[in-house]
Design a protein around this nucleic acid. Sequence first.
DNA 1: TTGAAAGCGCTAACAA
DNA 2: TTGTTAGCGCTTTCAA
Lengths: 338, 338
Amino acid sequence: MDSKPNIQDVAKLANVSIATVSRVINNQGGVRKATEERILKAIEELGYIRNAAARTIKRKESKTIGVIVTDITNPFFPLVMAGIEQKAREKDYVTILSSTNESPVVEEKIIRNFIERGVDGIIITTADESGDQLKLLQDQNIPVVAVDRSIKNFEVDTVLVDNVKGSYQAVQQLILMGHRKIAIICGPQNTTPGLERFLGYKKALEDYNIPFDERLVINGDFGEDSGYSGTKQLKELDERPTAIFSSNNLMTIGCVKALNDLNWKLGSEVSFIGFDDVDIATFLNPKLTVVSRQMNVIGEIALTLLYERINFKGNLPHRQYLLTPELIIRQSCRLMGE
Amino acid sequence: MDSKPNIQDVAKLANVSIATVSRVINNQGGVRKATEERILKAIEELGYIRNAAARTIKRKESKTIGVIVTDITNPFFPLVMAGIEQKAREKDYVTILSSTNESPVVEEKIIRNFIERGVDGIIITTADESGDQLKLLQDQNIPVVAVDRSIKNFEVDTVLVDNVKGSYQAVQQLILMGHRKIAIICGPQNTTPGLERFLGYKKALEDYNIPFDERLVINGDFGEDSGYSGTKQLKELDERPTAIFSSNNLMTIGCVKALNDLNWKLGSEVSFIGFDDVDIATFLNPKLTVVSRQMNVIGEIALTLLYERINFKGNLPHRQYLLTPELIIRQSCRLMGE
DNA sequence: TTGAAAGCGCTAACAA
DNA sequence: TTGTTAGCGCTTTCAA
């Protein structure tokens, strides 16, 4: 075949008008059986596939959802993405995925690009929670669902996890087991998860009247390296913590690596809980206790919300889903005094 | 703003023709400085963003690359994807990602959809190595780069890993350490990686005159569960293997889990090497020896090949990249007789 | 049940 | 340096 056949070519071959062909490829009915068959045959013969760009231009919808994540190599996102994709496919949407590497500049570029492409909606874990870059989308009336991180300056549908509760539960567990010197490896405090997980930690300490100790707070950046160096820092303290709470999966990995390298015995010498389950959790000895959440469900909900907003543009209220994470108790915490 | 402004609106506001606006947004030059500024101001004011669909239709290119993988939750793919995305962004392309879950039916749907959307090229890890579904792409003159799995019935550029050599090295290492009863957990034999890794295993045995034993060959499907059950099966053998070679990352995880559950001591009782590095490799005790490859490089090469083919449509020869994997020796193999 | 024709937003050839 | 205009491939109204 030389170049792509178009609706004209099909019409010519089937000896009908392009309008009739259009009716057939869109299943609009009102076409005589025989005619339809002739058209279908022509389509088959030519290998005709309709051009989405032309259709988008007329219909003013692209059946495309843009997804923006901060770091595609963080296992959290592919899992969320799988949930999004599955629901999207069910509803006949296709997803475009881009990763910002936490850069607001890249994020804005991606957003512009998505707008150019006429996405019908966007699911975003933003690198800039102010949300100023979303103004563009608002101007163009493109619905947005924020996942994992909330947006300050705009009201959008959100799917969040109750981070405060999650980390509260974790720290509470540690406290109930007798720990008082509990360290936390924080994520960036300008992100929802980073901040909230820290707040949950503080709240638990307060509720149980445990004095807050600055030295036990490590500022990480959600990357593996910061988990590693943070743990090293804790080991060097005069008064070492007896337990560590890590604010995310990658830092958990860094932390466990450091524990290993420093010969700081997980479980016996230092108890541990991490936010988000990780592959390695059940391989370690002892197995890691973690705060877990269902990533694919997050993705599914996000897509569902977005779908509703795209297709019932009326006056839906803004919805905030708050999923409750679950503490999965394994073996990385020891009762103090044991 | 009510609805999206178009090039007309900009032209009107700036008091020029749409042609001049087009020149400016495409940086074609030949526009008086003052005029350009007026147009830029109008664009700014209206929040105009150009419509990619309309442009695609005229230009007959979408600046979009379709990427098809078999399982987005397999950590291998996000890593490859990161390499693809980075290079794509450099060259001003955007990627669309879809996952087939190993289903040829889904794969064909995705391909059709990508064609509809006018992708300029496709990078694919196919679920159907016959490649028959790629006929569609060939008909439409859309370049394809196959990654990780080759295509039988069409000549396309490929980026593969020398699986035979990789698994040969692994098995050879085991042999040199004195093992003779070496089991393999295979991937599907109708996939390139599945088959080739098995062939490397056989070749190593042959070269060292070790008799091939059917019972030590487990048929897995590259999924975690099959690694788990395969390992169980091996444990139940009258003559247990002294070493296991696992053909991919997910099966490695399943295998290690099983080892743990069965209390079959990794390292001491059974040596182990896996194809592809995994997160857990360095956490386990002993640390896992693995065959490793640079995923992001695979992605980068794939995109580069595709880019060349899209943009120099002349008569490029078909290229086959074969990356050599590396054996990373850690501690999961014991010298026999120690 | 079918067809003619307008027009979506843009690019590019041609004219001025 | 700028403008006019013909389409790109499609959907959709209106008429037949």
